[in-house]
Write a protein that binds this DNA or RNA. Structure first.
Lengths: 232, 232
DNA sequence: CCATATCATCTTCCATGGAAGCTGCAATGG
DNA sequence: CCATTGCAGCTTCCATGGAAGATGATATGG
């Protein structure tokens, strides 16, 4: 009865993710974990076999991944897993710098109660980062900080842009964890962003967020290039 | 030999656009021209009939348009042409402000010969704008200016982000042309951006580009809202 | 009269097969 | 020995049909 009424108005239960969704997630996961070496050429048939569907969901998932820049569909030839050069990583970081910087400035422009609430949550993540036992936990808290920063800025398009470029960079992120960059430098930089937000100073927040990401970029990109990695 | 070698490495002739491509372009065109009222719900079948293909290319084109935010695919229900609220337009402008501002700053950081060459081309478009006979021509030159600004900044991801949000805003643009905003104010603002680029001053270029777009945003968004347009 | 259940009809989702394009190799001709 | 051509085997592209979900009108029971 109630269940019938609920079924009736069920807007989009999406109980069971579609096969396209599953194929998309599985394919993306495999790419990020570098189970498919970058530059490899695959066919829909073999992916369909691997993921246990027919070729159609694979094809549609590939279209989505192509839109996100993770693969390229070569007409009549196959699916190419894109390779990222250090220059690509640099481009991606520059997008992050532009968007995330603006997001920080936007938060600093919010009415005081709102921006203080956000600042508190940002501070909590930063604290988690500081006391984290291992590198893994520290990275997670770091990611949570940056996700929150852009989710809270009030422009959903900012979030979706960052989601896209982050997924492009994900493969490199996995690799970078092994390089163990000095993430502890991030803590005071995060605090500087938080302080500017609390003070309601958009200019300083913008500059602090940009400087933070630019510092990371300038640390990471030469490192990748020096390791002679032409692509990931 | 050269021809053989070239044929060998020919990446993708793409002589004839695929049906998906055609359906994508036609569907998008129809949406932008508001031939489909926003909010309307369509079926793949009827679109297939209209565009003279089967349902498959329509479906794949719709997936692409969904990725771009122009339509939403409602599972088992149909294809919804998205409606844009003034708030959406505002969000889109804010993305433009962040990305285009950064692009201007990046150009200002280029070595002098390069940035002067770009400045010259930007100036040519601005001049075309100034002497344009009708509003139509003026808009075209304006668009060319902004396209060039972001194409020349050296980060292809900036261009692709702007392409996406611009296509989202395209429907509103068509509408806005009829409002005939005072585009002449743009000319000196463009010149300010160009001057900062020539001077190699990234900060000023950033501020000038942001101010220009922010001015347009603050002119347009209330106008749309005042017209009582809940969506386009 | 209202609430609930049923059902006809719409839709997408996904599997599959034929058509056509691309590639690399072997055969052919100089 | 090299350049060209033909071909076999791969790939995607696209059409189509069955399955299952979503919806709204209608029937049914209180």
């Amino acid at each position: 009865m109630a269940s019938a009424a609920r079924r009736r108005t069920m807007p989009a239960g999406e109980i069971r993710p579609s096969l396209v969704e599953q194929a998309y997630a599985a394919f993306k996961e495999a790419i990020v974990r570098s189970e498919f070496p970058p530059g490899i050429q695959l066919s829909a048939q073999e992916l369909a076999l691997r993921f246990g569907t027919s070729r159609t969901p694979i094809h549609e998932a590939s279209l989505r991944l192509q839109e996100e820049g993770l693969v390229r569909i070569l007409p009549k030839r196959g699916i190419l897993v894109c390779a990222l050069s250090p220059e690509d990583i640099r481009e991606i970081y520059d997008v992050i710098i532009a968007i995330e910087g603006d997001a920080a400035a936007r938060i600093a422009r919010l009415p005081e109660p709102e921006r203080l609430a956000i600042a508190e949550r940002l501070d909590a993540e930063t604290a988690r980062m500081e006391v984290a036992a291992d590198f893994e936990a520290r990275s997670l808290a770091d990611m949570a900080f940056h996700t929150l920063l852009v989710e809270a800025c009030g422009n959903s398009r900012f979030a979706s842009i960052l989601k896209t470029v982050n997924s492009q960079a994900a493969r490199a992120q996995v690799f970078m964890v092994q390089l163990r960059p000095n993430i502890e430098r991030s803590v005071p930089e995060h605090r500087a962003i938080i302080a500017a937000i609390c003070a309601g100073d958009p200019e300083t927040a913008l500059a602090a967020a940009r400087a933070h990401r630019a510092r990371v970029r300038d640390e990471i990109v030469p490192l990748l290039a020096r390791f002679g990695l032409r692509h990931f």
